[in-house]
Design a protein around this nucleic acid. Sequence first.
DNA 1: GAGTGGTCTAGACCACCCG
DNA 2: GGGTGGTCTAGACCACTCG
Lengths: 248, 248
Amino acid sequence: MIVEGLTMSLPNVPGVPLYVQIREALREEIEDGQFVPGQQIPPEEELASHYGVSRMTLRRAITDLIDEGFIYRRHGVGTFISHLQVNRDHTRLTDFLEGAKASGLEARVEVLKKEVVPANHQVAKALALDEGVEVLHITTLRIVNDQPVTLHNSYVPRALLGLLSEDKLAVSSPWLLLENRGMKIKDALERLEARGADEEQAAILAMEQDDPILYKERIVFAEDGMPVEFEVCYNRGDKYSCSIILRR
Amino acid sequence: MIVEGLTMSLPNVPGVPLYVQIREALREEIEDGQFVPGQQIPPEEELASHYGVSRMTLRRAITDLIDEGFIYRRHGVGTFISHLQVNRDHTRLTDFLEGAKASGLEARVEVLKKEVVPANHQVAKALALDEGVEVLHITTLRIVNDQPVTLHNSYVPRALLGLLSEDKLAVSSPWLLLENRGMKIKDALERLEARGADEEQAAILAMEQDDPILYKERIVFAEDGMPVEFEVCYNRGDKYSCSIILRR
DNA sequence: GAGTGGTCTAGACCACCCG
DNA sequence: GGGTGGTCTAGACCACTCG
């Protein structure tokens, strides 16, 4: 709990910005339930002197927590704890195996095909390449609890292959490998549709033809706005759903 | 174009923060193509003196544009124009009719049913109410270019009905009406699935039974984190897709 | 080392909400 | 009017990148 009139001694971790330390300290207090939903937290002036920082620095910490949905501000009134904390990870780009592991699911990936092909119209457009330019195409089957869930296709510009280690390819998402090599991944644009399974998809995913499939395509962008990967995947409708957050 | 060594005379609009004016001025320059993708923009120090503001204020404007994906920063290097500007509206909560109008589509809404009912388990859970508590349930059909696209169900806690004008209900989204009444809408949590149409849905949406449906449910939250509306909708798979942005 | 963005200060004044 | 958050300053020093 925050004790008034006392300057908090922050651990003073070297190399970690003050606003990060304060943000995490506040986040911990909120998650520990030291504030109840709807409760007002002390004014910025008071929190600033409490932590021994300027108000601007404190505000930076608060603003981060607001972006995460933990608290909200009302001009002229105060700063308050949110009533429900929605899991903001829903609108985060995450790797399949990482995400499954975090959810406590037993998951694995089987590589079905790995080849260099000329980009067709759809792939070329997504990756901002000319049609016919060579791309790496990887087809995998994603399996959760021993049941096939997703038939997955990934396309990567051949020009980026120098950055990828051949052995890990397909197990990790290509964009994650690129990130591990120092490339900054910014975001991804996804499009979702409901479709019926064709004969091949049905066979691979152990379902009947025309059974519902959640079709998803995704373009992954680096920080400079260039597409680095295009994915097309077919998800069993009865075993896969997609959750997201839309901001107003 | 930005002329160096000259302090820009901002319109000095009263009531509009400087960082907003600068942000919009910069956005305009970028959208007008006065910077090419990948191009470095002047350093913060220079831009600050150019606009006659402090560097902190300028950074606030820049940071907003980065959040929108127009530009990106590289520590120790500079600030640059992004190569591709993805339409960020995709991860925004928007009203159906507003959105259709913005896309230039002819769209309308038909009200099929409007009644007060006790909340079932699913609705109660979504709206953080006890089962059996009364809620308003509105069923509508959303029609684009004279073709039915979405069978839509909306649930609103009865306690909020005082804020809603009866006549406009159903035409506008309930959350939009609440917003127009001064309530701050923060965000929405959506879940998407692929399903097959049942007999009733198929009849209403003019499709065959078991044809692909994009099922979507959505909880809309106010700024304080409380749910204000729950939606369940069935979208024709061949006429509806959903695009979103995932941040890394 | 020069140039860039990242963090931080110690104030100031304004805008908003409420009793 | 008193209390709150919103904006803004004019500096300072640090961290990173690159030639």
